[in-house]
Nucleic acid binder design. Structure first.
Length: 356
DNA sequence: TAATCGTGGAT
DNA sequence: TATCCAAGATT
């Protein structure tokens, strides 16, 4: 029995051929032959940073409808952008998105730079996004490295060195394959391949246009690649939030500092989040947004961030018409208009279920 | 360089 | 329930 020889067609061309037959229909993707809109490419790529296609799609469509151009987005109040971004996570992206829109709108007359180096200088655009925009929106040859490309290259070339140390090696391999023609389609093709065929678990090697060339598969180690260094265990932090109901029914919220965790988003006022045990009501009073008769509600709200678990207790109190408090009184029926991240929406739901 | 920074779906 | 992980950027 003769082993089938690899196809004589180059790897990039085989992948482009596969892409022409299998490209996914995504809301931000230009139709074949259509010119890509740099604004849409940029908006989608920023949203897609560390975020799934499924999560991004509705946000992308809402943003595009509300702010159809970079000028429109630049002129929007940043609070509106934060609110529209709520639930998508990594909120620094929303602030940088708005900053970037203002730079492009004001200083560049609405035109995004068409090369990688200039794109890289804009807020919220790093190595990956600069390369992706240059390739997809402007047809430039750029080596686009994301998690998919890293995984595909690690398997194709059987790179055993663990991430993140292996990144330069993997980029070298990616560069060796990146073609001059159709670089935007090629970049999206590798990412589609990683997302649908060369998946982290149970890769569908039988459907892969690069199967015969894959060194990882030849060695039977494809599913163990890319290797990664072990991650530290997540600690658990504890907080106690204060649900304050004014006589007219409004509740007290406040805006978080502009940078750091959940930067610029709204929150239910709370104690600091600390390790080393849950807050009791008595010491927590000192952290309350105002003096009141706090009562501890039953239950616990749990949430997990990138690097720690959070367990929140909830205390409630009622106040008169004009209490002295630092924050924003929000009528119950306007909670949906606030830039509340998911953890805060969980707290609100818990309060509405237990405090009335 | 190594931390920090969200969320939800899949397994 | 616990862990992984996704079209990464910033400091």
């Amino acid at each position: 029995m003769v082993k089938p020889m690899p196809s004589p067609t180059s790897l990039p061309l085989r992948l482009l051929d596969w892409y022409d037959r299998n490209a996914r229909l995504l809301p931000w993707r230009a139709r074949p032959g259509e010119m890509a809109d740099p604004y849409r490419v940029w908006l989608s790529e920023v949203m897609l940073q560390q975020t799934t296609v499924q999560a991004v799609a509705p946000y992308f469509l809402r943003f595009l409808e509300r702010w159809p151009s970079v000028h429109a987005l630049a002129q929007a109040p940043v609070e509106d952008v934060m609110h529209a971004w709520a639930g998508l996570g990594y909120y620094a992206r929303a602030r940088n998105l708005h900053k970037c829109a203002q730079v492009v709108s004001e200083w560049r007359e609405g035109h995004f730079p068409d090369d990688e180096d200039a794109l890289r200088k804009l807020p919220g655009i790093g190595d990956y996004t600069a390369a992706a925009i240059a390739a997809i929106a402007f047809g430039r040859r750029a080596v686009v490295m994301d998690g998919n490309v890293e995984r595909v290259m690690a398997r194709l070339f059987a790179v055993r060195e663990p991430l993140p140390a292996a990144k330069p090696t993997l980029k070298g391999h990616a560069a060796s394959l990146t073609p001059e023609t159709r670089p935007g389609d090629y970049a999206q093709a590798v990412m589609d391949l990683g997302a649908t065929i060369c998946t982290p678990r149970n890769p569908a090697c039988g459907l892969c246009p690069w199967m015969d060339a894959c060194e990882g598969r030849k060695l039977g180690i494809e599913e163990s690649l890319p290797a990664k260094v072990e991650k530290a265990e997540k600690p658990t932090r504890h907080g106690l939030a204060f649900w304050t109901v004014r006589k007219d029914g409004a509740v007290l919220l406040r805006r978080r500092p502009p940078s750091g965790l959940l930067g610029g988003m709204m929150e239910v006022p709370s104690t600091p989040w600390r390790e080393g045990g849950a807050w009791e009501l008595e010491p927590a009073r000192a952290e309350a947004p105002l003096n009141a008769e706090w009562r501890l509600l039953p239950g616990l709200v749990r949430h997990t961030f990138t690097h720690f678990h959070l367990e929140m207790r909830l205390a409630t109190a009622r106040t008169g018409n004009n209490p002295l408090a630092r924050g924003i009184w929000c009528p119950l029926d306007q909670l949906g208009d606030q830039a509340l991240p998911t953890i805060m929406r969980k707290l609100v739901r818990h309060a509405l279920a237990k405090a009335y």
